[in-house]
Nucleic acid binder design. Structure first.
Lengths: 142, 142
DNA sequence: GTGTAAATGAGGACAGTTTTCATTTATATT
DNA sequence: AATATAAATGAAAACTGTCCTCATTTACAC
């Protein structure tokens, strides 16, 4: 109920209705990955009239505060997910849009090794595996 | 000289001036990675008045024909590179924008293994490592 | 309670890219 | 070589996702 208030305070953000509601949507929704538009619509559905610009602002602030992370899906729009502490990468179904997460230590290590080899001081990395998920394969017989 | 003509014909594309010139730019330029805007400017500099819309169209067709591939850099604009047959991933310098390529068999394998594990029929993947390149580290002392 | 800095809403701005549509061009056919 | 036709082009407008501006409202420290 008021755990979100603490999250915001800890993040150095004033406690405002839009921030509380956006955070709530992110926590409550069954899909872990939402675009700004998705969040906006969910807010409307739950009766909150919060502007899209505010949603973008809030999500960007949350990102800065480490509350959420932003994924940039293949040149298209961004989606946001609640930060859960551990780094992970993503598998995306090109048919239904489902996003799954995975962690792979071997890949993590190799990335660091490659950056080092090339003299890069690595700051970040993004890995997306695109494909057709199990369900879509079964349903549509790809 | 007219090797490009063959490339276009083989790709099932009519041989037109814009296509020849765009292909030429991609082959001649010293940077392997160009945005549509970059190509457009290079064309202007070489005296060809080819519209930006045409550049986008031609690049998209080239992508479809397998002549170039498109990289979607972290939510920003796309860059294009001449297809060289072998799959590779990219290292990007967040300071100067330089793009380096690398191939890593271990990562390739792990990706396939992960897709399989999750029941995905993998179609593609993209891996970007972001960091500060050697030169920028030296110059700016990060 | 009140002051002040910060947050919001609405609408416009913006960048990169794509579409529309009238005109031009490449190529297959004569 | 001339011609017909489908495809390609240019210019400008449309589009999408995102961000900014600025006037108004709000949270929070005092």
């Amino acid at each position: 109920m008021s755990m979100e208030r603490q999250d915001l305070r800890k993040a150095g953000l004033k406690v405002t209705l839009p921030r509380l509601k956006v955070l709530e949507i992110l926590e409550v929704t069954e899909q872990r990955h939402l675009s700004a538009e998705d969040v906006y619509k969910a807010l409307l559905e739950s009766g909150e009239e919060i502007g899209l610009a505010t949603v973008y602002r809030v999500l960007t602030q949350f990102e800065g505060a480490g509350l959420v992370s932003r994924l940039s899906i293949d040149g298209g729009h961004a989606v946001f997910e609640l930060e859960n502490g551990e780094h992970h990468d993503h598998l995306l179904c090109v048919s239904c849009g489902e996003i799954q997460e995975f962690v792979d230590e071997v890949i993590e290590e190799r990335q660091h090794a490659i950056a080092k080899e090339k003299g890069f001081q690595m700051t970040e990395h993004s890995l997306y595996i695109y494909g057709i998920c199990k369900r879509c394969q079964e349903e549509r017989k790809y």
